[in-house]
């Protein structure tokens, strides 16, 4: 009875599909590092930091902070943000898509700066990620740099110090 065999296969397929999410707890969410990819480059007139925020994710503007070694005096110039109306936080300024931030400083060829980029964001799916710190070792004229290694624990200042400010 071929139709019955086909039907049984459909039953099995249905059961497998219904149990699929139980096997993997979060198959559809990206790790923070992929959801909020950061890179930076150092040129003669300053640092350009680029965040590539994946579709369906956003970064909070007031959670973007930088530290550098040696300390650079240039104030980061953040681009125009979007206003999100949040049930709990009221109006929040956020970024989606590509975010290009300029930190104007004067450098000479071959100069090295270690930049720590701090950020915090959420997914529209209804989860938020803990604040992240990514360390970028920049050399003037050396091109675009991505974070070197996976770092779960932040070094130096505490994770919460990185957050600062109000929620």
């Amino acid at each position: 009875m071929r139709p019955a065999v086909a039907a049984m296969l459909l039953v099995v397929a249905g059961m497998m599909l219904s149990t699929a999410p139980v096997v993997a707890a979060s198959p559809d969410l990206l790790p923070a590092r992929d959801a909020f990819q950061v890179s930076a480059k150092l040129d003669a007139d300053g640092i350009t930091v680029r965040y590539r925020v994946a579709d369906g994710y956003y970064l909070y503007r007031d959670k973007i902070r930088f530290e550098s070694d040696p300390v650079v005096r240039g104030k980061p110039r953040l681009p125009k943000s979007l206003t999100k109306h949040d049930e709990f936080f009221g109006k929040s300024e956020i970024y989606r898509g590509e975010v290009v931030i300029r930190i104007p400083i004067r450098t000479h060829d071959g100069e090295q700066v270690t930049l720590t980029a701090m950020s915090q964001g959420c997914a529209d799916a209804g989860v938020c990620y803990p604040p992240s710190r990514e360390v970028l070792a920049l050399t003037a004229g050396g091109g675009e740099v991505f974070p070197a290694t996976m770092k779960r624990s932040p070094s130096g200042k505490s994770l919460i110090d990185a957050l600062g400010g109000k929620p």
């Binding site: 139709p3 019955a4 086909a6 039907a7 049984m8 296969l9 459909l10 039953v11 397929a13 249905g14 059961m15 497998m16 599909l17 219904s18």
Partner: peptide, 13 residues
């Protein structure tokens, strides 16, 4: 049988 199977598939989806 086919109806039950299709319901199961739909529920799964």
């Amino acid at each position: 049988v086919v109806a039950v199977a299709l319901s199961a598939l739909a529920a799964g989806l």
